[in-house]
Amino acid sequence: MVLPTRVWRFGIKPVVFAVALIPAAWLAYEWWLAFQGQPHDLGFNPNETSNRFSGDWALRMLLITLALTPLTKILKSPKPILFRRMFGLFAYFYVCLHMLSYIWLDMLFNWPELWADVLKRIYITIGMTAFLMLTPLAITSTKGMVKRLGAKHWQRLHKLIYLIAPLAIIHFFMMRKGFQLEPLVYGAILAVLLLLRLMPGRRKKLAKA
C-alpha cells in the first residue's frame, strides 16, 4: 500500500486486467480449436464445459468485486477501490460470455425453445433476471454516467448488486443435481462479504471519536 496511486493505476492495474482476461482467452482458444476439429480441452461435452466455465468465472469476478469494499476496511487503505469498477465490468463480461455460450453454442439461437426455457425453468428465469439487472450497472459504470445520474442516484442504483449476487448464487445452486457442496461454498463466501459490510466502518468510528 506504500506504492503511490500512480503505480497502482498505470503499473499494476493493466497486469491485473490481463490476468483477468486469461480464462476468456482460454475459452475462446479452445472453442477455436474445437471448431477447427482439432484436439481441445473442453472435454466430451464442450457446451456443458463452456456454460459452466463462463458461469463460474462470472461468479468469481462478482465475488471479487464485492470483496474490494470490505478489503479497504481490513487493509485500512482505499487502494482496492481502484480495481472495483474493473472487476465489476469483468463480472459483466463473463456473464455476457455465459449468455453467448448458452444462447449461441448451446441453444443455437433456437429462440422459441430459448424463450420457453426462460419462462419455464426457474433457475434460468433467475439467471436471466440477474443478467438484466446487471446490465444497467455496467452501462452506468463510466465517469460521465456517474456525473449525469448524480452520486446519490448512482449509488442507489448500484445497490442492486446486493440483489443480483444472491440471485446468481441461487441460479448456481438450482442448476446442480442433488445437494452439492460447491454452490454452498460460493454462497458462504457471499454471506461473509455481505456481513463484513455490517462491521462498523472507519468513518463512523472517526465520527464517534
Binding site: N45, N47, E113, A116, D117, K120, R121, I122, Y123, M174, M175
Partner: peptide, 9 residues
C-alpha cells in the same frame, strides 16, 4: 422441471 427433455446432445 428444470430443463426440456425434447432434445439431447
Amino acid at each position: 422441471p428444470r430443463w426440456s427433455q425434447k432434445q439431447e446432445r
